[in-house]
Amino acid sequence: MIGPFGNITPFHLDILKEIGNIGAGHAATALSSLLNKGVDMKVPSVKVVSFHEITELIGGSETIVASVFFRVNGEAPGCMFFMMPSLQASHLIGQLTGEHTEDWKEFSEMAFSALQETGNILSGSYLSSLSDFTGLKLHPSVPATTVDMAGAVLSWGLMEISAVSDYAIVIETAFTGMNDQNGESLKGHFFLLPDPDSYRKIFNALGVPLDE
């Protein structure tokens, strides 16, 4: 593979996947104790995807999603998103606050706050395990929350990488476990989008440098 990613092999993607798994494990534990019920985070997929495909992962660029955005600061900067389709988000909010609003346009301040806090807890535990694993200092910015079109939100995170490439490596994590009224499990996604220069730092820290 060429471009800003250097020679990223399936082996490197597997390592990112393993990190994702560990992070997801911690995040699931955190979410379980918040909701007081079992939450499972699925094996993440780690993919090299084009800008177009990245929005397809969440259901198309016009899908309305609730998103919590963080800038990752520290030694390997990047962007991080926690995203849920708006209807799923309203079920999550219902479980957290007892407030049942199907229409995202009527989400209260409390609802946004619950969403933001969930994103905060998840990303915090995710990042701290990534940080433990790599020995790199990483910390999230204050979160920003919005409900809008997936494409509009995600393109924000692609800004850094887009200066050098039309592709991004997406570390995707899906969680399931909580149920909505119909007994269907809620699904959410994590996207970790390291800045172009951060890949090298992460792999170096893991002892598997990218060959020039």
Partner: peptide, 14 residues
Amino acid sequence: RVPQKIRTAGLGSC
């Protein structure tokens, strides 16, 4: 050109 239309979805900061 007519009668085609052209469209793009999900403009944020773009």
